[in-house]
Design a protein around this nucleic acid. Structure first.
Lengths: 149, 149
DNA sequence: ATGGGGCTTCCCACTGTTGGAAGGTCAAGA
DNA sequence: TCTTGACCTTCCAACAGTGGGAAGCCCCAT
């Protein structure tokens, strides 16, 4: 089947299928005489695997590991479980951070009148808040804690 | 003061200060005769504002709105509060998504033996899981729901 | 005047995804 | 048979933020 049909069947866009192939996450597809990529049902299974893993928040690097295990019949389920649990730990960490943001902002918003007057504790906090951690005012160490909304 | 000192005082790296200036989030800094950027304490306040807002998960676009309000003495606090509460709603949405991932993965991990044998319900799920939403297997509509860990 | 640390600009990388342009292929209908 | 439209190909750019580094000035202390 052509890439469009594989895309519809797997939920991965044709663009992304080509990208995953290019970066080596998935193997190079077969080609027809025309040069068109040709996908089997096994390929669609693999693509669905990728899509599902993305939906569960795994990074492409993690999916690469998972795909290797998926293809390896002599794998040990302990390895898969480890990756999954590590990922869960990362997700929980992220949740904690987001909850802290919500708590802080909710608190600030509550104390803000939200009327026509300019006085606003939210702006005051943004301007003046002191950090409580030992690393206060140190530049960030990486994009590790960023959230894309 | 030079950019390095402003960076240390605000917690925003010199790299990012230049980037924010280049993209118009913050105004162009004064320059000394040498060509070096020159920052006032007011500028440091502004940079701290940006840093704090980033820590609270606001996007650069949102911070742009907030900075305008910060500078506008005739602002209405209602406007600030609205931005904050909208952001809180976005954060909560994100938390919900992450919690769903955690729930699914925890459940799968529990039912995985995690031993030397290859059988693994986690891999089975990734390969076969059906989506429950009406938009099953549709390509994503944007990078709206992505999390960077 | 020499050395070292800070500053300047510019370009590149990352993650993951989308958009578009310029062109080749295929199948159906006139 | 020709045309049309849907599909495919590759390549290039953009997004958000951030870090890394090179080549070349600037400033100050020795």
């Amino acid at each position: 089947m052509n890439i469009g049909e594989a895309a519809r069947a797997s939920g991965v866009s044709a663009k992304m299928i080509r990208y995953y192939e290019q970066t080596g996450l998935i193997p190079q597809a077969e080609r027809k005489a025309s040069g068109y990529r040709d996908y089997s049902t096994r390929d669609v299974h693999m693509l669905r695997f990728v899509r599902r893993a993305r939906d569960l928040g795994f990074s492409v690097a993690e999916i690469d590991e998972l795909l290797h295990l998926w293809r390896d019949r002599s794998r040990q389920s302990a390895e898969v479980k480890r990756i999954a649990l590590d990922h869960v730990a990362g997700l929980k960490h992220k949740i904690t951070e987001l909850e802290e943001m919500v708590a802080t902002l909710s608190h600030l918003a509550e104390s803000c009148n939200g009327d026509h007057r300019p006085d606003c504790p939210i702006l005051d906090d943004l301007e003046n808040a002191q950090e409580s951690t030992a690393e206060a005012n140190q530049p960030r160490r990486g994009a590790i804690d960023r959230v894309v909304l």
